[in-house]
Amino acid sequence: MTATLPRTDVVPAASPKRRARAGGVLAVVPLLAFTAIAFGVPAIAMLNGAFSVKDQATGASSYSTQNLTTSLQGAYLTALLGSVKLSAVSAGIGTLLGLPLAQVIVTSRFRVLREAALTASGVLANFGGIPLAFAFVATLGNAGVLTRHLGLTDAGWDLYSFWGLVIVYLYFLIPLMVLTITPALEGLRSQWREAAQNNGATGVQYWRHVALPVLLPSLLGGFVLLFGSAFAAYATAAAMVGSSVPLVTLQIADAISGNVLVGQENVALALSLDMVLVAGLVMAVYLPLQRRSARWLDA
């Protein structure tokens, strides 16, 4: 009688979980390839140009940090700081105005009005560029309808200024804040308000000690999101103020169009790299705040 030995040449079948995991990886491959082509190639080209310096005498190119140094000096630095200031001011005002507006929408008893307001916010948050600039020029420009009828010019109003640009940016930043903070407001538990009232807290005390601390990560995240949206805006400012308000996006456009000194063409790529770094810092702040807010509201 001979013993039957187990076969060692049989390959075990893959488990369902392993097959599902492999299928998920294959499904992501097209997205990764598209991301690598659409974002990776331009990023590599930007980095290469930002660190490339061409010798005007010999025509030879070499790698140096000269372009980055130039992008942080003179008019370029002024434009970068101007964009940061404009984005911070408009994002701060948009956050302060968007929160109470979103609260009114969330607590509205009329469902149709609530849905209409959220739909309008979604449309207005994506309405920008040249059409928005022309709409404000026709309304609040030097010869605008409201400017002439209300005599705003005599009162010192100037649309083509820093504060004029802030007002235009608020047109799409406030609706964006409404869309951003509405889910957080809907996540506030009614039991929290009832518990505060049972302990003798007023409405102001409830918002100061309960609601606002819970909403703080969402508010800061919304501010950061608004900052990034305003920081990257270009067409609206280009159509309205041109070069009267120094902005880094306008400086990049001038450099790309050839309106720069000879040998300074790659400074535009260095300025773009500066913007990418600022955007990276913005996202580094936004993502942890978003996760922290989700933990509070989903608990």
Rank of each mutant, 00 (worst) to 15 (best):
A3F: 13
L5S: 12
P6T: 10
R7D: 14
V11E: 15
A13H: 13
A14K: 13
R18W: 13
A20E: 12
G23E: 12
A36E: 11
A38E: 09
P42K: 02
A43K: 05
I44P: 09
M46W: 08
V53D: 13
V53H: 14
A60M: 11
S61Y: 13
S62P: 01
S62I: 00
Y63T: 15
L72I: 12
T78R: 14
A88N: 08
S90R: 02
T95E: 01
P100T: 07
P100Q: 08
L101F: 11
Q103A: 15
S108G: 08
S108R: 06
R109T: 00
R111M: 06
V112Q: 00
A117Q: 06
V123S: 07
N126F: 01
N126I: 04
A135H: 05
F136Y: 09
A138V: 10
G144E: 08
L146Q: 01
T147F: 03
H149C: 01
H149Y: 12
G151H: 00
L152E: 07
W157V: 07
S161Q: 06
W163H: 10
G164A: 00
G164T: 02
I174T: 02
M177I: 08
E186F: 04
G187Y: 07
S190A: 11
A196K: 00
N198L: 03
N198P: 00
N198G: 08
G200R: 01
V204W: 13
H209K: 13
V214R: 15
V214N: 14
S218F: 09
G222W: 02
A233Q: 08
A235G: 04
V245D: 00
P246M: 08
V248L: 06
L250E: 06
I252Q: 00
A255Q: 09
I256P: 02
A268P: 03
V276G: 08
L277K: 05
V278T: 00
A279E: 03
V282A: 13
Q290C: 01
R291G: 05
A294T: 14
R295M: 13
